[in-house]
């Protein structure tokens, strides 16, 4: 084929991109910074901590924040709250993030496949989803952890088995819309192989909602660990985690309110950071 440049073809000027997303994405930057600081604190816990988090000191139990030597006070067993908070972050952030990664991947792939191929495959996957959704989230997770035995390993497995359905539904819904878009038809019309259309063309366009959901899912997972801790199925004591700190502090809510409130604030800050990241991602990547 020879190239002939076409006379009379108008070379229109390219539209300048003045869109609001070109602005500095404040939300995303603040969210990422906040979350980065939390992660940093968790990593540097051994350096930053002033005490051993599981070292009991009954003589100095329930000191108020600001007491000499104990920045945020001590709990009912005299353990340093500041240090426990830092070490708790290690557990909670790790479990929270890791427990979201596998349901995210499994749910996204199944949703992609289910939405794209439809037919019996879709029917089968969606029936399984219906079954999982029919049970309340916590009941199912608790039952599974109970069956598998307490510990972080079981928590990962249980949350994965229950959590993928949300991602699957989100992604499937997006795929059903996207596959009727002409760019998906165009990709098919140009004969590209299916896996390539799915992962190169569709995935980047449908994954955003799932990523946003995963941000709140991390917080939910941390809360799930709290609940599991309640039932003695969570992180076994004396390992510090925010859930067990809140639970332990609750009995002293009227006298030493800060025992439950300080780890609570940590959970809230984590949630806030993730929510900011989610909003920032929408601003940055949503093309609708």
């Amino acid at each position: 084929m020879t190239v002939i440049s076409v006379p009379g073809s108008a070379t229109d000027t390219v539209v300048p991109t003045t869109r609001r997303r070109r602005k500095h994405n404040v939300l995303l930057i603040v969210g990422l910074t906040l979350f980065g600081l939390l992660v940093l604190a968790a990593i540097l816990a051994p350096v930053l901590a002033s005490h051993d988090p599981i070292q009991q000191d009954l003589a100095n139990a329930r000191l108020a924040p600001g007491s000499p030597g104990h920045l945020l006070g001590t709990d009912e067993l005299g353990r340093d709250i500041y240090s426990r908070l830092l070490y708790g972050a290690r557990i909670d952030l790790r479990v929270g993030v890791l427990a979201v990664v596998s349901p995210f991947i499994i749910g996204t792939v199944l949703g992609l496949v289910s939405g794209w191929f439809g037919g019996w495959l879709d029917t089968v996957i969606m029936r399984i989803v219906d079954v999982v959704v029919a049970f309340p989230f916590f009941v199912l997770v608790i039952a599974l952890v109970f069956a598998l035995g307490a510990g972080t390993g079981s928590i990962y497995v249980a949350i994965t088995m229950v959590g993928w359905v949300a991602y699957c539904r989100i992604v499937r819904g997006e795929v059903l819309v996207a596959k009727e878009q002409e760019y998906a038809l165009a990709a098919r019309a140009s004969g590209l192989p299916t896996w390539r259309i799915l992962f190169r063309h569709l995935l980047p366009n449908v994954v955003l909602q799932a990523v946003i959901y995963s941000m709140s899912d991390i917080v939910l997972t941390i809360l799930a660990i709290v609940t599991l801790g309640y039932l003695g199925l969570g992180v076994p004591p004396p390992t510090p985690d925010w859930g067990s700190m809140i639970q332990d502090g609750q009995q002293f809510l009227l006298t030493q309110w800060y025992l439950a409130t300080i780890p609570g604030i940590a959970v809230v800050i984590t949630g806030l950071a993730l929510a900011l990241i989610a909003d920032g991602l929408v601003d940055r990547f949503d093309r609708r």
């Binding site: 009379g8 108008a10 070379t11 229109d12 000027t13 539209v15």
Partner: peptide, 9 residues
């Protein structure tokens, strides 16, 4: 017939 075009935007 050839159509007249208006270049640009």
């Amino acid at each position: 017939h050839r159509l007249l075009t208006i270049p640009g935007q």
